[in-house]
Amino acid sequence: MTRKDPIGPEFYVPLGTAEKVSDVAFYLAAALSIIVLLVDKTTQPKLYQAIQATFALAVIGVFVCGIVIRTYFAARAHSGRIADFVSNAFSVPLVASPSEGYYNTSANDPFLRIGASVLENTLFTKSIVAKMLYFERSRIGIYVFVWLWAVLYRATDLDLLTVAAQVLFSEQLLSRWVRMEWLRSRVERLYDDLYALIQSNSDITSKEFRARVVEGLIRYETSKAQAGLSLSSRVFHKMNADLSQKWQSLSGQLGIAPSKSPGP
């Protein structure tokens, strides 16, 4: 089966680019906030003013990027993906160019297709986020250790400590790690719930099964939206083959007939 995913290049690639721009602006602002403390404004007033102006522009850039990402790029990407998801489940073209071979199940019942697709998505998401957390935990651990050492070391300048605290407790560092841990935990629970639901329920036409499947879809999508995180494409491509093989085995155990295309 041919695999085509127009949603990724059209919506998620611009989202990834916007997030990279936001990260660059953040780290530039963080670096300038420290550099400005090391410049003597009495002996080098022009350099000091230039750094201050650049720092102000970087801070504004971080703010603008955050607003644009949340209200436009992320919202547009999530809307496009869920529309494509529903199109696949009910075989109704809700988007101009629906994906082909992206969802690895050929179940005929639309609600079973939804349940199987969300289960596959949770398998990929929880595994990728868990892998991303190896780096994230190490990075946060180093930052926290250095900051605490600086706090306990009495010779550390108070202004430098304040700047370091602002960087550490920012949206891009400590908050990102907390949201990543929350998303991993949330998706892992949903994965277990959906697996148990599909495994134990023989009547896929019952109202209870369909209601729980829809509830699972809503839980998954709202969890992603609340976390506000994009999965690493590098980690995805690295783990894709193993996760696709694991999904083939898992779907076989559940009696879901998957297609032979790669995972999402």
Rank of each mutant, 00 (worst) to 15 (best):
S79K: 15
F85D: 02
D157P: 01
R176H: 09
F111I: 09
S170T: 01
N104I: 14
W147M: 05
L133M: 13
F90E: 09
G80Q: 10
A96H: 08
N108M: 11
L133H: 05
V129L: 14
E120H: 13
R184L: 14
A83D: 08
S91W: 00
I140V: 13
S79C: 03
V187R: 07
N108Q: 12
A83S: 15
W177N: 11
L168M: 02
M180K: 05
A96D: 14
L119D: 08
S170G: 08
D109F: 03
F169H: 00
G115L: 03
R113T: 14
L123C: 08
A165Y: 06
S127H: 10
R179D: 09
F111M: 13
Y134R: 10
L174F: 10
L173M: 13
Y153K: 11
E171I: 00
A116Q: 08
T125P: 00
K126E: 12
S79R: 14
S97Y: 02
F135Y: 12
D109L: 02
Y103L: 07
I114W: 00
T122R: 11
F135T: 11
V146W: 07
R154L: 15
S138T: 10
A83W: 05
S138D: 06
Y102W: 13
P98W: 06
F135D: 15
V167M: 01
F73C: 03
A164P: 02
R179T: 00
N88G: 12
T156P: 01
S117C: 08
Y134L: 11
L158Q: 03
V187Y: 06
S97V: 08
